[in-house]
């Protein structure tokens, strides 16, 4: 099994929804448009992990908010961000803490759509802290491993969606 397949399997096991698409603007636009078909607005924040060209088409969608107001941050249901890497063994995506709105978007919304480049998938969590992977990028930033939706078992059964998003969609851009 290659890393992409392992990642897809682990992420699905952690209750994320995963799709693998070609790394092209039109395919990405198609996937995103489908995912947000019922939304009036969506938040979008990118931290230059992926080429801006990929979003050239999607950005034109009038529902996309790139510079959200306080009210929009509090009330928008769906947020889209990129992640700087994925972890195959756990199905995690790693979202950087940065000057962008990726952090607030990925923690305040009900549904988080996250996009990763398949080339950034590493085998295990420990590999992110090694200089052998990602050019040591993981060693020099604050970030969160996000593994499936927010969850709790404290109410006597497993419930998804507590303080963080109850849905996590991962779009993997394959070469």
């Amino acid at each position: 099994m290659n890393l992409i397949e392992e990642f897809v399997q682990s992420a699905a096991a952690a209750a994320a929804r995963v799709e693998v698409i070609p790394s092209e603007s039109r395919f990405l636009n198609e996937s995103l448009s489908h995912l947000i078909q019922n939304e009036k607005s969506v938040l979008l924040s990118l931290s230059n992990e992926l080429g801006p060209k990929l979003f050239s088409k999607f950005r034109l969608d009038s529902r996309v908010i790139a510079e959200p107001s306080k009210e929009q941050l509090k009330s928008t249901r769906v947020g889209i961000t990129d992640a700087f890497c994925g972890v195959a063994s756990t199905g995690s995506v790693c979202v950087s803490v940065s000057r962008s709105f990726a952090v607030p978007i990925s923690m305040l919304t009900r549904s988080h759509i996250v996009i990763i480049d398949s080339k950034t998938i590493v085998p295990r969590p420990r590999d992110i802290f090694s200089t052998h992977f990602l050019g040591g990028k993981g060693l020099h930033r604050s970030f969160s491993f996000i593994t499936g939706p927010s969850a709790t078992a404290d109410m006597g059964q497993l419930v998804r969606g507590v303080h963080g998003p109850g849905e996590l969609h991962v779009i993997v851009l394959a070469a």
């Binding site: 306080k70 199905g91 940065s98 604050s142 969160s144 491993f145 996000i146 593994t147 939706p149 963080g164």
Partner: peptide, 24 residues
């Protein structure tokens, strides 16, 4: 811990963070 592969969020933080202050 709980037998899951990894809990939903594992945060690696080097504060004070360089992150927008929202003042919500």
């Amino acid at each position: 811990g709980t037998g899951q592969s990894l809990t939903s969020y594992t945060n690696i933080l080097e504060p004070p963070l360089d992150l927008p202050i929202l003042n919500l």
